[in-house]
């Protein structure tokens, strides 16, 4: 009888403790970088390949992939995922390389202060406000539309040229 009471108390205490702990972030992110090379195939066509970035010199193209996984038991709310990546220093963004299935992609030219589409961003150049070029971008943002169910993954990517 005493043993039963003890087990019940322990179980209740465990439940109470679990209920008191706030839910931890259940989405994990990973960033990976590779170098882009163009190789010629047997037919003489140029083929884009990704190789290790352990030998990088100025002028090289670097390709970044940011992957994310819902490691928790609950579904992440649809439309709530926003990924932000300031461009790495000493690099310039290569136009049109930002990708992400199910995402809306916007850019910043003021270090993440404001974001807009490519047709909306302007910069001052020689005293005149002009449409921003890809080389003006400082930050990329992906707004992921779908819900992310438990165990599901997604990824976004972009490329830059090393100055």
């Amino acid at each position: 009888m005493i043993k039963m009471i003890r087990k019940t108390v322990v179980a209740l205490a465990t439940f109470a403790l679990m209920a008191a702990i706030p839910a931890v972030a259940s989405v994990e992110m990973n960033t990976a970088v590779q170098k882009v090379v163009i190789e010629e195939d047997e037919q003489g066509n140029n083929v884009r390949k990704l190789v290790s970035a352990d030998q990088v010199v100025p002028g090289d193209t670097l390709h970044y992939v940011i992957s994310f996984t819902n490691k928790g038991a609950n579904t992440v709310d649809s439309g709530s995922i926003v990924i932000t990546n300031p461009l790495p220093p000493d690099t310039v963004y290569l136009e049109g390389t930002a990708q992400g299935s199910g995402t809306e992609i916007t850019y910043s030219v003021d270090a993440g202060g404001t974001f807009g589409r490519t047709t909306e961003l302007t910069v001052l150049r020689e005293g005149e406000r002009v449409l921003a070029q890809a080389t003006d971008y400082t930050t990329i943002r992906w707004a992921f539309k779908p819900a992310l169910e438990a165990g599901k993954t997604g990824d976004v990517s972009f490329s830059v040229r090393l100055k």
Partner: peptide, 9 residues
């Protein structure tokens, strides 16, 4: 290079 993410459950 580091990315950040906001999300909601």
């Amino acid at each position: 290079n580091t990315a950040t993410m906001q999300f909601a459950i």
